[in-house]
Structures are given as structure tokens and as C-alpha cells.
Design a protein around this nucleic acid. Sequence first.
DNA 1: GTAGGGTTAG
Length: 843
Amino acid sequence: MAAQLSPSPLIFHHEDIILKTQNNSKPKTNANSLIGSLSNCRNVKELEQYHAQLTKTGICKTISVVNKMVVTCAEIATLESLDYARKVFELFAKYREMCDFLFLWNSLIRGYASVGLGDESIFLYLRMMNEGVVPDNFTFPFVLSGCTKILAFREGNQVHGCLMKMGFNEDTFIQNSLIHLYSENGDMEAAKLVFDGMLERNVVSWTSLIRGYVRGDCERKAVDLFFEMVESGIRPSAVTMTCVVSACAKLGDLELGERVCACMRSCGVEENDALVNALVDMYMKCGVIETAKRIFDECTDRNLVLYNTMMSNYVREGLAKEALTVFREMLMAGLRPDYITMLAIVSACAELGNLVYGMECHGYILRNGFNGLDYVINAVIDMYMKCDEPDYACYIFDPMVNKTTVSWNTMVAGFIRNGDIEPASRMFNLMPDKDLVSWNTIIGALVQESLFEEALELFRMMQNKGVKGDKVTMVSVASACGYLGALDLAKWVHYYIENNEITCDMCLSTALVDMYARCGDPQSSMQVFHKMREKDVSAWTASIGAMAMEGSGEKAIILFDEMIKQGVKPDGVAFLGVLTACSHSGLVEEGQRFFRSMKDDYGSPPKVVHYGCMVDLLGRAGMLKEAHKFIQNMPMEPNDVVWGALLAACRIHKNVELATYAAKRVTEFAPDRTGIHILLSNVYASAGKWCDVARVRMQLKEKGWHKPPGSSSIEVNGTINEFTASDESHPQMTHIARMLEEMCCRLKDAGHVPNLSHVLLDVDEHEKEHALNRHSEKLAIAFGLISTDHGDQIRVIKNLRMCADCHTFAKFVSDTYSREIVVRDNNRFHFFRQGLCSCRDFW
DNA sequence: GTAGGGTTAG
């Protein structure tokens, strides 16, 4: 609404007007030029000065002056000037027959629309109709623009109806305004309908439609339309370019952006502030920071928006320090930060964990009244959370009356980041409206905490509430699926993504590659990988990991070399993948080559995890002495993982002495690692040193530790059946036991001899054999044989390493029963086919 | 006359 009219020196008395009109005196030439100068005024103050001069000439109150005053005020279009114009207008309303009154109505409606006071535009339009003033073809674009600005689409529709009745529906300007109206309302069908029905289209018609598609996230369509427009011979304006360039920014498609820019240059479009800003934004969002920076630096008169663009993008890119540098430059240039500046700078502080600077920003926000804007205050909450001050965050959040979903999400995400899952899930349950981000946050957190089944449960709950997942959701879901090794579910996830048109970006594709690999389906994994349009180092690493898990060291190496050939620089994680692959396949020399290449060719010296991997590689291959020496020559302190790798190798190669030493070292670094003691007791047990086994077990018992039970699970018809050793609880246990007995007989006939050395009980042979036959993976395989069809794979997930006997057992089963068996243990897969295993008995 | 730039949480 128009603000209260302030007292003004310009007072018109209607007596004067009547007097002057009656006199009908011709203004003098110099007075005419003064009236003309009125339209050059830039603000109310200048208007008043001219008016003072006009007063001296004695013609200040003629109709032409009044007309000029109102129109100029409307054109200046500030709240102040509009107040002024309105006041003059209302005074004149009583004498409307004496001047071109429609012109004044139009000017005011236009003025209000241009400052965003759309409700005033609509109000004046309605009043004018009410008073019987007939609108013309100028009135409608103005009032429609007013409707669009305040998103008054219902009113806009009514105006559309009215102008149709009055026969204005073939006016290009009016149709342009209608396209804009429908575009802003997201109704592209209606916008397109108007566009298609136009007899004449100008650059604004095209631009409005293009802009609509950009707003509606149909950026490609927008760019296609742009090229179509140029093709049809219409020259783009700076406004058109601003829209198209921002479409390219949203897509992050540099190649397309460059094509658009080339087209812009060949059309000779003159740049303006908004266009330069859009260009800087595009280069930033396409990751070409140098180019953006160059344009920014070359720009001589940078405005606030341009500074904000640079700062926001720097923060988004994780370059908080650079954002602060630009901020200082901006202050030096004498510009006053607005709330968007503060959003960027508060986020920068959050990123840097700079509490002091962050609090200073908070102060500035309070002093300038930006704290009423939920955008800003949410960013402040986020900043306090990221600066590890949850109490400050709560202090703002708790009394907030305008908590939005984003406020809640910020709090939940903050707690999760700080590792406080309990308050996070409490807040999640408390929040009144959960949106996609809320669900993604909590599901992601559960996956991070390895609570995979809980994560999937929440995903189901989310769907039941009618919230559709997006690519972020699916990354978490795929990851959960992979860790659970649930292949049927994994296939469903892939299907869900394709059927719901979820854009499979690099991140999600990589998650799928990893998911299939962990579910023991390397073919599907590689299929997804090969379909990827672009592959970054993470994508390559996932595929290398897939081959490592499959046990195809050679294929992993081929992939690694191919990655380098394609110019993708391997990072520490990629090297870890290829070293693991070498280790799993016993490719000692190749592993050593990669290890050396890290420092020599890529300048990234191996970290302690890589050393651990090398110890594993040497140790598995039976080179225990070399592995030990390798540890002794490490440039950094070996940790529990490194010694643990040696210990594991000692178990495989039954070196009790070195195992004892390694276990001692491990305990020094990680006194709480239960697994190590169990590993050690396994070494003693396999060497028949039962006294030592008992001693270690006793120590564990005294400290209240217990061995995690070995467990195997198998998914049948979407249900996950879990077995632990000697577990009798399964409803079909009698069948399973009978099946196991039959299997043992048939395998014995086929030549299988139970390997009792891995039974860790100091009991007689018969009992040992019974215990051995009740290992969880055997139960799962037996259950798989009776509950799946003959041609089906039997897929078992085990939480620990497979024991040697179960491994041989599975090989025999695959041959005797002609079944493929896939077992995933704690770090790799075994594919059993026709009596052989993919690991070639090396694991 | 009608069209345009920078915006928090996963």
C-alpha cells in the first residue's frame, strides 16, 4: 500500500487550477523548456527545485505541469516519488475532465508495478474501471506486470478475461505481459498457448517464454528456444542473453555456455550490468573460476549484485577465504552490505569456523534488521552450529516464532555434523513439516552411522508419507543397499531411479557402481560405469574397487591405467583401491610399482593406510619377513592397522611367533581393539596351542569383551534370513538340518574332507566336526538350496572372514549341486562356480 | 509500454 503522504512544499489549490485554466494563458517559451526539464528529474528533490523555478514564472499550476509532474514521478518510480505523484493525482481527480486523465491513471499503475507495489496497481485499475474510465492498450501491460510482481495470478486471470472481452487480445505488448504472467506462475502450457497464438512476436515475446522455462527448471528447453529465436532472425537483447546465460549457469554446462556466448558475440549484443553479472555467475557455476575472476576484475564499476555473485559462488565452491577477500574489497569500494552479502559472509564464517567474525556479522544483521528474514537467520543458526556452538544456535532457534522447515533442517543437520545423533533424531521427530531435505538429512546420517536397515526403513516411511526421493536420497539408499549386500533391493533401487526420472549424476552413478559391486554383481556394476558420460576420480575408484572385490586384480589394474590415460589424476583413495586389488590377487610386483609411483609420479607420498595395504599385500603373499621389514622402514609411526595387517597375514601363514609380536604392537596402539585378540587366539588355535587360546579368551572375558558372533544372511523373496553359528532359531531349522546332513554325505562322497584346524574349540574330533558343520555360512547355503530354484544363484553375506573349511565346502557344493554361490565376507567376494572360487584360494 | 542478475538446510 502507498505509504502515508508526507507534507510537501508542492501544494495545489484547485482554485488556482481553475483560475489558470480559465485564463487559458499560453506558457512562455522559457517556461516550456522548464516544463520539459521536469522529465529529466531523477528524484523528488530535483522536482521540487524545478517547481520552485516554475513558481517564479507563475505558471506552476497549469495542467501540463501537473501532467508532467505525475508522469515524471511515476517514471522515477521510488516510493517517495510515487507518494508525491499519488497526492497530485488525487487532488486532480476532481477535475479529470480537464486533462488527459487516462494517461495519469496509466502512469500511476505503471509506477506502482515497477516498484513492486502490484496491489496498488490492481487497486487503481479496479477503481478506474469502477469509475467508468475505459482502459487502453497501455493500461493492460502495466496492470498485468503488477499482478505478476506480487504473484496475484487469480487477479491476472481476471484481467486476461476482461481484456479478451474488450478485444485487446491481439496486442503484442499485452500478449507479452500474459506470457510473463503465466510463466511466473509456472504454467508454461498457458504461456506457450499465448505465444503460439501470436500474430507477431518480438524479442520480448521470446525472452519471456525463455525466462519461463529457466524458472521452471527446463533449462535445455530454454536454450533450444533461444537458438530457435536467433535462427528465425530475431536479434537477442541483453535481457535475452541474461536469461539464457543464467540457464547455462543452472545447468553448469560450460560447453553450452560457450556456444551461447559465441552466438551473443556474433549478434553484437551490448553488455550491461545484469548480463555481466550473469556471465560471471555462469563461469563460476561451470567451475571456470579464473574466467569469472577475470571478468570481475576487468569490470570498472562493480555493483553490489556483482560483488554478491562473486562472494556467494566462492562460498559455494568452498573458497570461503576468497569470499572474505572480495568482501573486504567491497567495503573498501564504499558499498554497503545487504542481506544477500550477509548470507554469503555468514556462510563463509561457518565454513571457516570463524566464530568471532561470525558473531560480528550477526551483530551487523541485528543492527540492520536483517534478522527478520528467515533466510538470514537460518544461515546464522547454521554458522553457530558449524562453529561448534550448538547452545548459541538453540538460543536463536528456540524462541523463533517464524521457524521454517529450513530452520529445523539446519538444526538437525548441525547436530548430525557434530555427531549428536540423538538430539538430531529427536528434532526430526518433532518437526511439524518434513520436506525432502529433512528426510535426506536423517537418512544420510543413518547411513553414515552404519545403521543401514534403519535408513531403508526411513526411506520406506518417507514414501508412505508421499515424499518422493531425489538423487540425494538415492545416493544414501544405494549406499545402504550396498552395505547390506541386498541385490534384489539394489535392482529395485536402480529401477526406481530410472522410473522416477531421477537424474543420475556422477555422484549417484558412482554410488550405483559401488552398490552393485558390494552386492556381488560386478557385471551390473561395470555396466553402470561404462554408461557414464563423464567419469571423475571417484567413479574410476568405484569401478576399480568393484574389480578388487571380485578378485580381478588384473582388470582393476587395466582400469587404473585407463583412468590415467584419460587424464584423470589418481588420488589417495584411487591408489588404495588399486593396491587392495593387487593384494587380493597376490600381484606383489604390480602393487610395489603402484606404491612407488604414488610419490615418484604423482607427488602424493603414501599415507599410513597405503603402508597398511602394502603390509597386507606382502603378508598375504607369504612374504612375512619382508612385510615386517617394510614396517620397520616406514617413514612414519606404524599404527594398529599396519600391525593388524601383519597379524592377519601371520594367521593365514600360521606364524605364531610373529603373530604374538604383532598382536602386542597392535595392543599398544589400540588397547580396545577386541578383534585383534580374537585374531591372535585364532592363530594359537590353528596351531593347536590351546593353552594360549584359553589365556587370551580369559583376558577378553575379564575385560568384558566378547567375540562378535559370525553371522551370515541370505535374502529370499525380499526377506533377509540371518543365521549365526549353531543357531537353531530359524523356523525351518529341521529342514535345514536334514539338508546339511545330506549335503555332508554327498560332499564326502565327492571327496570333501572337513578341515578341523579352524575349529577354535578344545574338544574332541566329533564335536569339532559338528560345530564346523553349523557355521553360519553353511546354514545359509543349506537354506538357500532348499528355498530357491535350481538355476538361482545362492547369495550369502557374511560379517567375518570366511573360514577355510567353509570355503572348500562352498566349492564342493557349487560343483555337486550345480549352483553358483556368491559369498561376501567382510572385505571381498567369493564367486563359487563348478568347484572353483574366483579368489583362486587366495584371500 | 512488455522481458533480466546475486538467496539458507541434505
